[in-house]
Design a binder for these strands. Sequence first.
DNA 1: CAGTGAGCGAGCTTCCGCTTGACTT
Length: 764
Amino acid sequence: MEKNLVIVESPAKARTIAKALGENFTVTSSFGHIRDLSKKKLGIDPDKGFTPEYVIPPDKKDLIKNLTKAAEEASLIWLASDEDREGEAIAWHLKETLNIPDEKTRRIAFHEITKDAILEAIENPRDIDMNLVMAQQARRVLDRLVGYKVSPILWKKVKPRLSAGRVQSVAVRLVVEREREIMKFQSTSSFRVEGLFTCPERNTDPFKAELNRRLNTDKEAEDFLNGCIGAEYSVTNVEKKQGRKCPAPPFTTSTLQQEASRKLGFSVGQTMSVAQRLYESGRITYMRTDSTQLSKTALASAKKIITNTYGAEYGKTRQYTARSKGAQEAHEAIRPTFMDLAKVEGNVAEKKLYDLIWKRTLASQMADALVDKTQISINKGKSADIFTATGEVIVFDGFLKVYRESSDDEPEKTSAKPAEILPPLESGDKLEAGQIKAVQRFTQSPFRYTEASLVKKMEELGIGRPSTYAPIISTILQRQYVIKGDRPAKTRKYLELVLQDNQVIRRENTEKYGEERGKLFPEDIGILVNDYLMEYFSSIVDYNFTAKVEEDFDRIASGRLVWNKMLEEFYRPFSKTLDQALETSRPGNGERYLGIDPVSGKPVSVRLGRFGAMAQLGESDDPEKRYAGLGKGQLLESITLEEALQLFKLPREMGLYQDSPVLVSKGRFGPYVKWQGKYVSLGKSDDPYSVTLERCVALIEQAREQETKKHILEFPEEDIRVLKGRYGPYISHAKKNYRIPKGTDPESLTLEDCRKIIQKKDND
DNA sequence: CAGTGAGCGAGCTTCCGCTTGACTT
């Protein structure tokens, strides 16, 4: 009997395919790529045609042994990795590494994981497409050259352990440039005028209408309102239009990450690991995809559910085409495996994410929503000023019954929302104005990126792949190029001028604005590295670099370009750039002179030092010069003289407590109080610059109390203590910690017990 | 863990894309 071995990339996929193929096929998986360039060295010789030296990573050795054995025993090996560049390369590496002869090799691809599709694939095997494989090889080698040639330059010129790459460096650039836009941004204000109108003849309720222009100053606003006194208003035009809203396409990796971020507050990493669990338990299709396509079976079952639940008029079968640049569409969109399963078992996160996927998929197959839009234009006397009232009524909800996509733009809270319904008015109707008010509004600075909106931007630029979006975010966070953080809301005053009973009243109100949560902020080192790369490696951090090389990869894939010729073309100028950077480049240290300290008359400057960003008070040759580290959220580029001077107010001598001095200062781990040689961290809401002695004493007392509670047992003669820590009780001895075995009551431990525990662990 | 800021100079750091586990402090 024939023995067939099918190799796919993912074990979960292998399980489903095994079921469809039956007993004559053994289905196994490669767990992604099986060979790669060595991590330790470059693995490419640019002088010898760029031929890569592939190695099997240590953690794949066992797998390869098993696969080789299985391949030897089989009579036919079906290489069923994905039908894209990376998948084709995996098929080729498998054939090479497992030593599979041509006559035993069959290359197939499944377009959807259904029995019919799988059997059809088996009927139509082909050869490995070497052009596509070489396109992948060119991609791999190029990324290695960029990453492993530029990073060491950063180690030498800036700081060890830094990194640069075709994708990550552009991600950092986006964050840095957005921050600079925000720094540069100057808010301006104008006055938005809104009136309440009624039509006495038709006995209507009051409705809102907005003036079609903004007024620049409060004077202008006041004049305008005064001009409204006694004015006559009439309807000049009523326009009715029917609009449509169509559903969003089914999820890809990046749109799932965006929606899970906006609606569920998940990080992109969180979304991926929850999705992975749903995938492994067979609830959803593959979660790393750039395709919005749905399988025929999925389309059919969605239609059935919609018809049964909402009626046939709610259904509209549609297939969406790829929106993103460079999409390779090796998989389906992310959808429930079984559409008729509306809810899944699992933890809260799994349930919520599944619900989101289910609704989005279903909605994508539903009818457009129909909206009646009405716009009423209102004349103010004979002036050119026009007020406009807009109304929007949903006449058929369609897909909105199930799902509504959210947006990244945080709408200005007070801006006019369209009214649900407007009174039936006709051109020529006379209106009466009730209250008219002019409210000061401010322009908003650009938004900082969230993890998910950065992914969206990268996808738009064609940079990165579904499998790398989450890891890229972790990398730039890990390198401390960017940091994820919050900013509290700020308050500002705004003016409101109200015309009521023929009088203009002026009010000053306050409002909160600009609160940010979970946003990406650049760090000083990220800014510095970005500026360095922009100066010496501008072609690499060019937003179009990836798109340009992708064109070449496509030409390689279609046989119009030879892979190492392309690399040759790239490398010749690139190696010159490298040499130049090594020889001549000097990265900045972010140094800025901020001004003179009015108290001491000494100059204040900031720069990046060995231990991070710092401020310096006094010239470098001043023996009494002082240093202070910059605080959290402060950047070299934007810190002001006032803020820097503030830093030198620490340490503060607070006074005496029980005859010992109390000191407040800031260290590596944040602000602290020091008293009698002991350190106590300040609370989250305490400000080291304004905290009082009283509060410090309270903190000291609290810490003292905890200290006494912390000690459960003491055997000082042998330097053994039983302490209570963050993770429960433990034994401390000679500056090392030891766990207490489960089920042991820490208070009943004897000195002998402790010795045993210590000895046991030290012997391990 | 707790205020550093110059420097002997070993040996190490690093990319992007495929894919899952194996680990507790």
